[in-house]
Every structure is written in C-alpha cells, then in structure tokens.
Design a protein around this nucleic acid. Structure first.
Length: 426
RNA sequence: GGUAGGGUACCGAAGCGGUCAAACGGGGCAGACUGUAAAUCUGCUGGCUCAAGCCUUCGAAGGUUCGAAUCCUUCCCCUACCA
C-alpha cells in the first residue's frame, strides 16, 4: 500500500496533483510542510500536518518541516481580525527552537536513511532583495492566473473584504520556498491543509517554469468538529502541545471529551493505530458508547506521543481520581501529586483560622467563578462541590477543618472544572 | 475630499428622553437526563452588598435636562456609493 493510500483511508487526503501517487511510490522523496513560528509552541491544530510527515517518514520518505521565519516576520495577513504583532528575529528563532523540540516527539531527526530535517525560509527569503525577487520569481507569475485562484477571487469579488497586496503576493513567497527546497534540498513534494492548495500549486508551477522539473502537491482536509466549532479550541483556550501552556491532564481531557461523532475520524487522523484496530474501536463506540473505549484509546495514544509515558501516567492518575470516584482514602501527598496538573492556588493558613474565609470569596479568588455574583449563582444552582460534596449554602465559610490533612481542599464546579486549594504558611 | 448609513454588553441585533443593566437570538456557565458524548428541557449570564440598595456600562469628550443608550456640539473609527 502506498503512503497516499494510507493517507486516503485515514481521510487525510483531500486532493493531490496529477501523478503525485506514482511519484511517491517510486522511491523516497523529499516532502515538506510549512509551520508558522508565531508562538513557541504548536497546538493540536498543527497535529494534522505533523501526522502527514510522520506517515511519510514511516514510508521511507524524507520529511522536511519548514518554519516560516520570513513569512512569520511579515505576519500572515489572512483573517481580518487584528494585525498580528510583528515578531522580532530573536523571538522567531526562539519559537523555531520550541517547535523543533516538539516535532522531535513525532519525527526522527536521526533516522539513518531518511532523517527528518528542519528548514527556515528566512535563510533564503531574508537574503533576497526586492528586485531580484521580482525578476526571478515574479516574472514567472501571471497576475491573470493569480487572480483566478479561488482564494484570491473570492476576496477580490467580495464587497466586504478586499485583499491587500501583501496577501495577494503571499503565494509568491510560498512558491519561492518550494523552488528553493526543490533545488537545494531535493524536495519534490509539498503537503499541507487544503487551504494551502492554491499556494502549493503555485509552487508546483514555479518549479516547472524555472527548472523544468516536476514537483507535486497533496493536501489534507481541514479538520471539522461535528458541532461546527473550531477544532482545538476550548473555553479555556487553545490546546497546546507545550506542557507549560496546556498541562498533560488538560491535554488528555481534551481528547477524552471528543464527541462520539468525531472520535472515529480523530483516531484515523492522530494515531498510528491500524485499520482493524480503529474499526474495532468504531464498533465499540457503536455497541457500548458509555465505555468510551475510542476516546480513551485516542487520548492515551496522543498524550503518550506528546507528553511521554510519565505525562500520560500523571494525566490518567488525575483522571482516575477525579472521575473514578471520591477523594476519600487519598492522603494529602497523593492528592498533591494527582493535582499537580490541575489549576491550583494557595491560601494562607492564618486566614483559615476561626471562621475561615467566605466560600464565595474563595470561589471568586481562585478564578473558578468569575465574580462573587457568579459564585453565588453557581452555588444556588447546585454546581459547586467541596471535596466532592455539593455546597448548598451561599453564606458558608471555609475553615481549616475542611482541608484534607489540613493541607488540601478540592473545589469543583460542574462536572469537569477542578481547582485545588492548598493551605500555605505555618 | 464629497454623500449616505453606522459604532449598544462575549458575538449578532433591538431600543431612539424617564417604566433600560438595556428586548430577542447565538455563545457561555450550571441543573435535570446520560456515558467526562450528542440531543433535549430548565435556570443563570456587568460589579458590589443581595432583600427592597448602590456603583460602572450603550465609540470618546463635553453640553442641554429634574432625568440621556436615546437630544445638541466637537472629535475618533467603520461601511457603502461618488471623486
């Protein structure tokens, strides 16, 4: 089975240029995908292109992760909301290092015949001057053709949203990248999300015009959620791969909470489980949905790859304690351990003496509720739990005696929001 | 630069001198039902004390008025058409 067939059954292949399958089937090829270094961490949305590279490397091809240092310095103009703050060169380089570290969880940069490589387009685009660029690259583009590109045409014809020159010329930069990698890195295939299709084919065309060589492109569909929300965002924000931004526990929970309707797709997208395994999990979801076997397999697989076995173990431990049953029987040390990844805050022990602090203040201070009014409403609505017991009294006060072994208090709002309060000070 | 229409809470969108903390929809949160899913139903959704009170909000700053999101002035910003 060729690698494109593999991608196809997983639903990772939306479109490919003519001959791409044969090209990849013949011999190992260099294949690249671009990543934006706009933050020092990738997020789960980047997982899809990463998985494309993973599959390609497994199939013996040479994966190249291209960091868009140059394009990142300019700022991706698409999307009309707010100009992106310009990155400094140092910031961009730091981001690139962070991204590299994360890619190492997925790609093997040491593999003997076909190590993964990383490139930064600032290395060549940053040295190009305008006149050379216009002569060497711009000359090969027909504005007529550029205007016909779907993404451009929609904007040109739109009354609400025009298109700036910068954005219009973006496809030239990306095409120039492809040309450079084609010549200097022996890279003949570019992949990406389907929104990149126009840019990729622009690169394919450029390579042919300049070198007479033949390059190829293939794109994955955009990830959708059954509820129509943006994949990878939760109320708490983006799900990042960096444990300092998104704890392994939260990361694990993100996957556990995937709706039944999506879990089959995600298993195909984000894990390397083979077809029979996934189909078995599909069947399990169908037959006994309450077991959540597919969600667990998904969460386990992805969390392990991103955070390693220790991270997965911590996440599962915390999950078992929180959702598996009560906190009874756990001692303070275990609780502290389990909740290492859960949001927490400290309260001075002296404040807990006597009457203690008002529950509503505590809820507002910890951020579990956005204000005292919100806290009050939550308690009145029965959505607040202290150490697993529903709080019913809005006037309740929290004293030291409620703390497990005098150290920890577990606050919970609703079913899934936990907050650990630690008593501090002597 | 001209003309017209706009800027209202997280978003969309009513309101157009008092009864407006501001209709309605979406989103969000909680409850019920469940399976840490979806759908559905119910409640809540500016802040502070919460009861009946107070404070801050309707682009910004001033003004008129007993009283303004609503009227006036100036300014800023959007959108369309024209130049």
């Amino acid at each position: 089975m060729s690698v494109l067939d593999e991608l196809a059954w997983r639903g990772l292949l939306q479109d490919a240029t003519e001959g791409a399958a044969e090209h990849l089937a013949q011999e190992p090829r260099g294949v690249y995908i671009g990543f934006d270094p706009t933050a020092d961490s990738l997020h789960v949305g980047s997982l899809l292109p990463i998985m494309l590279l993973v599959h390609l490397q497994r199939a013996g091809h040479h994966p190249i992760a291209l960091v868009g240092g140059a394009t990142g310095l300019i700022g991706d103009p698409s999307g009309k909301s707010a100009e992106r703050p310009l990155l400094t060169r140092e910031g961009m380089e730091a981001n690139a290092r962070g991204i590299r570290a994360q890619l190492e969880h997925f790609l093997d940069f040491e593999a003997a015949p076909n190590p993964a490589r990383m490139r930064n387009n600032l290395d060549w685009l940053g040295r190009t001057n305008v006149l050379d660029f216009l002569r060497d690259i711009g000359k090969h583009f027909s504005v007529n053709a550029m205007l016909r590109k779907e993404s451009v045409r929609r904007r040109v014809e739109s009354d609400e949203q025009g298109i700036s020159f910068t954005e219009f010329s973006y496809q030239l930069l990306q095409a120039a990248d492809f040309l450079h990698l084609f010549r200097d890195d022996g890279c003949s295939v570019q992949m990406g999300g389907s929104d990149q299709w126009g840019n990729i084919t622009a690169g394919v065309d450029l390579v042919r015009r300049v070198t007479g060589g033949h390059a190829f492109g293939a794109v994955a569909p955009l990830i959708t959620t059954s509820s129509g929300t943006k994949f990878g965002k939760t109320e708490e924000g983006t799900i990042w791969l960096d444990p300092r931004r998104t704890s392994p526990y939260r990361f694990y929970q993100f996957w556990i909470n995937v709706p039944d309707a999506d879990v089959g797709d995600y298993l195909r997208f984000f894990t390397l489980l083979d077809r029979p395994e996934i189909e078995a999990l599909d069947a399990a979801t169908e037959a006994e949905p309450h077991r959540r076997a597919a969600q667990k397999a998904l969460a386990e697989d992805v969390t392990r790859r991103v955070h390693g076995d220790p991270g997965l173990a911590r996440a599962q431990q915390a999950t078992a304690a929180l959702f598996g049953g009560s906190l009874e029987g756990l001692d303070a040390a275990e609780i502290g351990d389990i909740f290492a990844d859960v949001p927490s805050s400290t309260v001075a022990r002296t404040d807990l003496e006597g009457e203690g602090v008002a529950l509503l203040d505590l809820l507002a201070d910890t951020g579990l509720c956005s204000s005292k009014g919100d806290a009050r409403r939550s308690v009145e609505g029965g959505g607040i739990y202290l150490n697993g017991e529903r709080a019913t009294d809005t006037a309740a006060r929290v004293g030291g005696s409620l703390f497990i072994e005098g150290r920890y208090l577990v606050l919970r709002k609703g079913k899934k929001s936990y907050h650990l309060v630690e008593a501090a000070g002597s």
